[in-house]
């Protein structure tokens, strides 16, 4: 759906490039994530794909045509949810949505969406009276107003309580399952791990690695099993590599000892990110 080749971008007032020659492809019907610390270039890349930043170098194709060749019809196709709350504070949630809805040719009924994100009962409340989490959920509904094919989400669950974050993640997955494509940027590793079909690690404006979370874990993760067991009343721990679990030592331990816990030593995406880029995610 989107192909990016040798993308560079520099903000006019910055001395160095924010994006330094990145290449990637977002396939139709996938959730593609950009994982990186603040200032790594995630949001900038997203804004370039949304045609908000136009003075870039490199090639970007959307559905086989250069992105720059698209006019206003491009925006009929895409939905965007920004990280910061965006709404007219003195208008109610419904008035906000109604205003934006009228700017599009194709729109959806907002009632089921507001109900899904838990804002229907507060639809007539002014957006300025909403909490940050409610404003972010309103952003998300606004992103879905025009029945988009391509959804750009910037930190979609940041500042949202776990229960509502779960609902939003389910909605993102539903969108993908119905054929939609999602470009997700976040520094929250668990969201990326849970949602993304593929993730790209970005640091200092460069892509350092790109694959499915599972493949990255296999490639960079520590593949081991940790066993906690009791012996003579004392709690002991022993770690086995994947090759060792077929050996009699491991099997004997399971059979003869009082096992308390058994964990696979799966490495988190965050640990892999640090290993690959040398940069901490919450930097």
């Amino acid at each position: 759906m989107i192909k990016v080749k040798d993308l560079h971008f520099k903000y006019p007032r910055n001395e160095s490039n924010t994006i330094n020659g990145i290449d990637f492809e977002i396939k139709e019907g996938e959730i593609f994530g950009f994982l990186g610390p603040s200032g790594a270039g995630k949001s900038t890349t997203q804004k370039i794909l949304m045609k908000l930043l136009r003075e870039y170098k490199g090639e970007i194709e959307y559905r086989g045509k250069p992105l720059a060749s698209y006019g206003d019809e491009f925006y009929q196709d895409i939905g965007v949810s920004f990280e910061m709350p965006i709404s007219f504070s003195k208008l109610t949630a419904l008035e906000n949505l109604e205003f934006f809805k009228n700017l599009y040719k194709n729109t959806v009924d907002v009632e089921p969406l507001l109900k899904q994100v838990g804002l229907w009962d507060d639809r007539d409340k002014k957006a300025g009276e909403y909490s940050k989490g409610m404003k972010i959920r309103l952003n998300f509904v606004r992103a879905l107003l025009n029945d988009p094919k391509f959804l750009c989400l910037d930190e979609p669950t940041n500042g949202i309580d776990p229960a509502n974050a779960r609902i939003m993640k389910d909605m993102i997955r539903d969108f993908r399952n119905k054929g939609g494509t999602v470009f997700l940027t976040s520094h929250i590793m668990s969201d990326m791990d849970e949602l993304c079909d593929r993730v790209a690690f970005i640091a200092d404006g460069k892509l350092r690695e790109m694959d499915s979370p599972r493949n990255l874990k296999i490639k960079y993760g520590k593949r081991s099993v940790k066993v906690e067991y009791r012996e003579n009343g004392e709690l002991l721990t022993q770690e086995f590599s994947m090759a060792e679990i077929k050996t009699p030592v491991f099997c004997d331990l399971l059979r003869d000892k009082e096992i308390e816990t058994l964990h696979s030593g799966e490495t988190t995406l965050e640990e892999i990110f640090i290993k690959v880029t040398g940069v901490a995610l919450r930097a």
């Binding site: 908000l52 007219f88 025009n146």
Partner: peptide
């Protein structure tokens, strides 16, 4: 000033409005 404060210009410019 209000549009700037509430970032609503971002939302308008990612709609088909020129």
């Amino acid at each position: 000033f209000y549009e700037k404060k509430e970032h609503t210009i971002n939302s308008i410019m990612i709609s088909p409005v020129t």
